[in-house]
Amino acid sequence: MTRTRFQQEMEELREKLLRMGGLAELAVDRACQAYSERDLARCQMVLDNESLINAAEREIDELAFDILATQQPAAVDLRFILAVTKINSDLERVGDQAVNIAERVMDLIELPAAELPVDIPRMATAVGAMVRRALESFVEGKAELAQAVLEMDHVVDRMRDEAFIMLVRKMNETPEVTQQALDALLVARNLERVADHATNIAEDVIFWVLGADVRHHAQSLAAAQPPDRPERQEQ
């Protein structure tokens, strides 16, 4: 029994989510480049593209809803659709964080440039890698790749904590750059939130592939096993 229409719809859902992932990833990249280069035009591109991400979110939810209603998927297919709807929501929020970063950068551009003790580009590289690997784990359907994303999250958390300490110190020592330091601090916080969404995406990929709920350490990945594929015996 081949379920051609079902398989086509599942493939369409996958492709739509990947396009959505591409848009969200691009938005974060552009916002971070805008920070490094104080580029107002890039900020505006991030703001303009937000509506595309929002539209993509609605489209994906609609298709997932249709498939659930008409095809009654089970097992790995059901897990895939549930994972897609959750990843969809995380990607939309990644887009929101990119907009937040762009707005902070627009604010910074209007202020005098200040020497700040924070390496936002380095943090952006780490966060960008997490988003990219989370999406790769979805493309490949590989729990190991997703697991690697989970392990990167604490690195970004530490960067955010360090940025907070250094920037608050800077505000105390040099009050005239408080506004710039505050903007940079918010950018660091936005990036850390993007990393959290990448982590959620990785957890959803693990749920899809292995059926294991690893959120909040509910289940260890080591205990989760894919279905057995016993060798077929001749009868």
Binding site: M1, R3, P227, D228
Partner: peptide, 19 residues
Amino acid sequence: IFTKPSDKRTEDYVTGRFG
């Protein structure tokens, strides 16, 4: 059986991949 079967053959059946 319908969310996370242990055997690939069960999964193939309940997801309509054969049968």
